[in-house]
């Protein structure tokens, strides 16, 4: 979700990603599949006032082999914006194969990483190991509930980085310079995240829940790329 530009912080360059959003493999968690939607809020409170923006998210691509997912994020009640602001984001799933706990970009230091991951209770058992070596020596099979290892996942940890504005121009006065530390619950499809941008308020909390878009139940669509 974009935030209002408060300083002259230019958006960071879009990182290249090796990803193949082919969908030959089914997602390990159906709630994290393409087409799934989520709704909730992002707390953008500052010392001056309490504020939360409504946020909708839709998953558009998912490629577990490359630890990749992507989608659309829609911020609904952005002050001074005439329409909801839609951004395209790409996600890195922390699988210790494609991506590790250490971000190494987007102005995030290892200390920032540990501080943010520590906000998620599922991360607690890994804290000491990650502090020691960034989690490189972790035996993934001991933590099936976190890692996207085979089809065993529970609370996959991810980073979401907004890449571009979909429906407004870059000079709209908003920035997507930061990124999200995200924890997804495969139990109920809830998403918790923290927005990180050294130039914005710290620990802006993102809380989303799986939505049914007015239906009396869960619905699943799919596409398959060639």
């Amino acid at each position: 979700m974009p935030v209002r530009v408060v300083e002259s912080s230019a958006p960071s360059p879009a990182p290249g990603q090796d990803a193949n959003p082919g969908h030959a493999l089914p997602p390990a968690c159906t709630l994290l599949g393409v087409g799934q939607t989520f709704a909730g809020t992002q707390n953008v409170s500052s010392s001056q006032k309490d504020e939360a923006w409504k946020v909708n998210v839709r998953i558009q691509g998912f490629d577990p082999a490359h630890g990749y997912l992507c989608g659309i994020m829609e911020a609904l009640n952005v002050p001074y914006a005439e329409t909801p602001v839609v951004t395209f984001w790409e996600g890195e799933i922390i699988d210790s194969k494609n991506y590790t706990f250490y971000t190494g970009k987007w102005e995030a230091t290892p200390d920032d990483d540990v501080k943010h991951w520590s906000q998620f209770s599922s991360f607690s058992p890994l804290l000491s190991q990650v502090k020691a070596d960034g989690g490189k020596s972790l035996d993934l099979s001991n933590y099936p509930y976190i890692f996207m290892n085979s089809d065993q996942l529970y609370f996959p940890l991810q980073r979401w980085k907004e890449q571009y504005f979909v429906n407004v121009s870059v000079d709209c006065g908003l920035t997507i310079a930061g990124f999200y530390y995200v924890c997804f619950s495969c139990i109920d499809g809830s998403i918790n995240g923290f927005y990180y941008d050294p130039n914005s308020s710290p620990f802006q909390k993102l809380e989303l829940k799986s939505t049914n878009e007015g239906r009396s139940g869960f619905s699943f669509s799919s596409y398959q790329l060639q």
């Binding site: 558009q60 395209f88 571009y164």
Partner: peptide, 16 residues
């Protein structure tokens, strides 16, 4: 074209 359009990012961005 099949290969190029395997990118969700490009499909969105370039269609736009």
């Amino acid at each position: 074209l099949t290969s190029i359009s395997r990118s969700v990012k490009d499909l969105l961005q370039n269609l736009f």
